[in-house]
């Protein structure tokens, strides 16, 4: 009963958060005057939604061992994100979110994604209104990675993970660009969203915006680095994490 309600809450909140990213694509024309208000409301709603999902995952009893593992992976992620930061397109923290979520499951992955971004923002001073949106994006990627099927062959596992990594890199990039689209391009330029326009024409302009801002290039870089890191370290890291999972008595099944 408790679990069912929790799952429902997470699903609705997840959908709501996608809406908060992608609204410029399908906002109705009559809402044009409201966009500024909507943006503001979402700045408040997004962190609250994130908080509520985190509470849903956290109230399922987390043991001290899981917490400690979470702490380790979040710290590791924050540190390697620090090492990779500054170089365009090099994203060094996604692979660990994906691997961690793959071994420990969706709920763990969600918290790991959100936590990694949060802690690295605290360390580097990247806290801003965009932070809850970045956290949500990374958290959703963790959530998804926890659903990747477990393969019993190592190459198959890696293939699944790499495919997911590529998709996730572009989806994350698209979500973040969607978020800054109305802020940076505003309305009324040729690459801005137009309220009430058909989805396809808004999508086209979005793609043009992605290209002229170099977003796609960035996403490609993210996809390549993440896949490479998974291929290079995947087997060893999964083995180590699985050993830790056994020791901590946690894992996908539980």
């Amino acid at each position: 009963m408790k679990l069912v309600i929790s799952r429902l809450s997470i699903a609705v909140a997840g959908l709501g958060s996608i809406l908060m990213f992608a609204w410029p694509l399908f906002i109705s024309q009559s809402s044009t005057s409201e966009t500024q208000l909507a943006q503001t409301v979402f700045i408040v709603l997004m962190p609250l939604t994130l908080l509520l999902i985190l509470v849903e995952f956290a109230t399922g009893d987390i043991s001290s061992k899981q917490l400690a593992l979470l702490g380790v992976l979040v710290a590791l992620n924050a540190v390697i994100r620090l090492l990779g930061a500054g170089t365009a397109g090099i994203e060094t923290s996604f692979f660990l979110i994906i691997l961690g979520a793959y071994v420990f499951g969706s709920g763990f992955g969600f918290i790991l994604g959100a936590g990694s971004i949060f802690v690295s923002a605290l360390i580097t001073g990247g806290v801003g209104p965009w932070l809850p949106f970045q956290m949500m994006g990374a958290a959703l990627i963790g959530l998804g990675a926890g659903l990747i099927p477990q393969a019993n062959r190592s190459w198959l596992t890696k293939m699944y993970l790499v495919i997911y990594a590529v998709i996730a890199s572009f989806v994350y990039g698209a979500l973040m660009t969607l978020w800054n689209w109305p802020y940076l391009a505003g309305t009324g330029t040729q690459v801005s969203y137009v309220a009430g326009d058909p989805l396809m024409s808004n999508l086209t302009r979005f793609l043009q915006y992605e290209i002229v801002t170099g977003g796609l290039l960035w996403d490609t870089g993210r996809a390549i680095t993440t896949s490479l890191l998974i291929l290079l370290t995947g087997s060893a890291l999964i083995a180590t994490l699985k050993r830790a999972a056994t020791r901590a008595g946690v894992g996908r099944s539980s």
């Binding site: 380790v72 710290a75 802690v119 605290l122 360390i123």
Partner: peptide, 8 residues
């Protein structure tokens, strides 16, 4: 978990 991470 996050304070553990910040300390680690």
């Amino acid at each position: 978990a996050l304070s553990i991470a910040i300390n680690l």
